[in-house]
Design a protein around this nucleic acid. Structure first.
Length: 280
DNA sequence: ACAGGATCCTGGGGGC
DNA sequence: TGCCCCCAGGATCCTG
């Protein structure tokens, strides 16, 4: 569910509610997440204090004092929020972190349970575990790296954007929206892109994600931010979920196809530009 | 190397 | 009301 802008929003909204607070207890439901929460992690976490909260791609990193790292992934339907401990938990709440004197708790709710929560001794250990599987942040994409990553692959642009090892944090919505913004056909192969087109795509990704963060992400189903508020970016979608609706730029009906195993929305006119394929 | 499919799950919506 | 089928912001594993 949540992509970079939604995860960033959750982190920003939870930060003031969590930093400096001590984790007094942890409890989990009987149902497991994508990665099982281990009981032995609880003794590592209890008694420690939240020092910092960061985002890396679609991952949420909670730095603990004096040591340890809590790593959360929201999967498709994950939600994080701070609630009064007396408030009855919603269905599908699977992890509870009691805060301070226990009057409040951080809750991890995940209907489909594609999310995960794990504990790691430190950042280095986590980074080595995801090494090679997590590319640079979209905002840190070096033009040379990005051109090269596209130039060296025959995969279509949609598949490249969804590949977390190439660029971290882009998912189905923002891949489609970025390709529309860059006026590039999602079926184009990476190797077909000129340097100028690669730069255009990179700038489009940054612009779309930046604008989406300003709107606190997109709420189309289950997503809510760390404060429980919904996002607003769904009102600015140009192509995602707009199958058969007129393109906002040229009125041509938006097309939906299956690409890289995912629904892919684009404007056949605005994004119809193709670079002739080189021979050989 | 890459596409495509299946898998992990639950719930919502459409068609009947 | 109900049933059946398809769909869904993700990641990963397997096959061809």
């Amino acid at each position: 569910m949540p992509e970079l802008p939604e995860v960033e929003t959750v982190v920003r909204e939870l930060r003031p509610l969590l930093i400096g607070r001590q984790i007094a207890a942890v409890r989990s439901s009987t149902k497991h997440l994508r990665q099982r929460w281990r009981k032995q992690w609880e003794s590592q976490v209890v008694g420690s204090t939240v020092r910092a909260m960061r985002r890396r791609g679609k991952w949420i990193l909670v730095d603990l004092d004096p040591a340890g790292l809590l790593v959360l992934h929201l999967g498709m339907t994950g939600q994080l929020g701070v609630f009064s401990a007396g408030l009855k938990p919603q269905d599908h709440t699977h992890l509870f972190f009691a805060l301070g004197n226990g009057e409040e708790e951080l809750r991890f709710r995940d209907i489909r349970r594609f999310g995960s929560a794990t504990w790691h001794p430190d950042t280095i250990e986590w980074e080595s575990a995801v090494d090679g599987k997590l590319g640079p942040e979209p905002f840190d994409l070096e033009p040379g790296y990005w051109r090269d990553a596209l130039h060296r692959t025959e995969r279509c642009l949609k598949a490249v954007l969804l590949d977390q090892s190439v660029v971290a944090g882009v998912g189905n919505i923002y891949a489609d929206e970025s390709l529309f913004s860059a006026k590039l056909d999602p079926r184009m192969r990476g190797e077909q892109l000129s340097a100028a087109q690669a730069d255009r795509l990179r700038n489009a990704i940054v612009a779309v994600l930046t604008r989406a963060i300003e709107s606190r992400g997109s709420s189309i189903r289950n997503y809510v931010g760390g404060s429980g508020l919904k996002g607003e970016y769904q009102n600015e979608f140009r192509v995602y979920g707009r199958t058969d609706e007129p393109c906002r730029r040229c009125q041509t009906p938006i097309v939906c196809i299956r690409l890289a195993g995912r629904s892919t929305h684009y404007c056949p006119k605005c994004q119809g530009e193709r670079t002739p394929r080189a021979r050989g």
